[in-house]
Each structure stands twice: as C-alpha cells, then as structure tokens.
Computed example of a mutant assay.
Amino acid sequence: MKIRLASQENTLLAQTLYMDEHQLTTDVPVSDGGENLGPSPHDLYDAALASCKALTVMWFARKKNISVFHIDTHITRDDSQERQGIYKLTTSLIIHGDFSEEEFHQLSAVAEKCPVHKLMTSVTTEISTKVERAA
C-alpha cells in the first residue's frame, strides 16, 4: 500500500490523506496552529492501535466461531511525558456477545497480541526521509 498526502488549498495546515481507495483529512488542533479539520497524526497513531485491537479480536472470534456481536474500543492518551520518551496509551475493550469464560480469556489474550501493539512495543522502526525541491 502506498500512502500519499497533499496539502489542502485554503487551509492553514490540513492535508488530504490517500490510502488506496480511501481518503480523509488530517490536521492539528487550533491550539497547535491548525483548524482541527480532521484527526491529528497523534490521533491517527492512537486510532491505529484501537482499530487493530478490535479488528484482531473480531477476526479471532470469527475464526474460532466465538459469538461476538460488537466491540466498543476506547483509547486514553497520556502524552504528558512524551518529550521524556514515555507515551502512554490505555486501551479498553468492551466485548458484547454470547461466549464462555474460557472464550473471554482467549479474546482478552488476543487483544494483547494485535500486530500494531507489537509494532509499537517490540519492533525497531527504521525511517528514512527524502526531501526534494519541486521542479
């Protein structure tokens, strides 16, 4: 997948984010110089974890024929120590369905193993940046 962003005309900082056939607006809050026209990069980072946990649990439930009807997922961010290298995310999943206590424990364990959780906590991410002058 290729991700592309383009600055939105007539906005202060907003970008249109293109991911395959999907697109959305990303911006920063007014307090940071934007217009709050969409989620911030930090919001997208946090949302990646929330959506991965919910999708992973739902995928596992379907695979194992565990009756899960709905999942409510909440993320709470504590970025008060981000500059010191600590960024805290607290996730809460409320799983609605008809399942046993053993199946609930399986679903809980799977929530801890979603791929984005692993990326955020166990993997070294290498980033290279190329900046070019427009022709």
Rank of each mutant, 00 (worst) to 15 (best):
R62G: 12
H74I: 14
Y45C: 11
H22Q: 14
D46E: 11
G97N: 06
T56F: 04
D46Y: 04
P41L: 01
L93G: 03
R83H: 05
Y45N: 07
D78F: 08
V30A: 10
A109F: 07
K63W: 01
I71L: 04
D72T: 12
V68C: 01
T11D: 03
D78Y: 02
A109P: 08
N36R: 12
T121N: 04
A54K: 03
T16E: 15
S40W: 05
A50T: 06
G34M: 09
Q81E: 09
K88G: 07
T124N: 10
D43V: 06
A54F: 03
D27E: 07
C52L: 03
K113I: 04
L119K: 11
L55G: 11
H74G: 14
A14F: 04
N36A: 15
S40M: 05
S51G: 10
M120F: 09
T124A: 15
P115L: 08
A111S: 09
A47D: 06
G33P: 04
E35L: 10
N65K: 15
T16I: 13
S31W: 09
T11A: 01
E103C: 07
I71Y: 06
T91R: 05
A54N: 05
F69G: 13
R62L: 10
M19F: 13
L12N: 13
T73D: 15
A50Y: 02
L107T: 00
P39H: 05
Y87P: 06
N36Q: 14
T73R: 04
A50L: 11
P41S: 04
T25A: 04
H22S: 14
F99H: 00
H70K: 14
K118V: 10
N36S: 09
H70M: 08
A109K: 12
L119Q: 14
T16L: 09
P41E: 00
N65T: 15
D98H: 15
K113N: 10
R62Q: 15
Q81N: 11
G33W: 01
E82I: 15
H42K: 08
T26N: 10
E21G: 02
H70R: 12
I66K: 01
M19T: 13
P39S: 09
V110Q: 01
E112T: 12
D32T: 11
I66W: 03
W59S: 12
A48P: 03
G38A: 00
K113V: 05
I86M: 04
I71R: 03
V123L: 11
T124G: 10
H22L: 15
D27R: 07
C114N: 04
F60H: 09
G97R: 00
F60S: 02
K53G: 01
T76G: 10
P39N: 08
Y45W: 08
T73W: 02
L12A: 13
P39D: 09
A54W: 04
Q15C: 09
L17N: 09
D32F: 13
S40K: 07
L49S: 03
A109C: 10
T121E: 01
Q15A: 01
H42L: 14
K64S: 08
E35C: 06
F104H: 11
T121I: 07
M19W: 07
P115Y: 07
W59F: 14
L24T: 15
M58Q: 13
E35I: 03
E102A: 15
K53C: 05
D79L: 04
K63G: 07
H74Q: 13
Y18N: 06
T11L: 06
D72K: 05
T11F: 00
D98V: 13
T124E: 13
H22W: 11
L37F: 02
G38W: 00
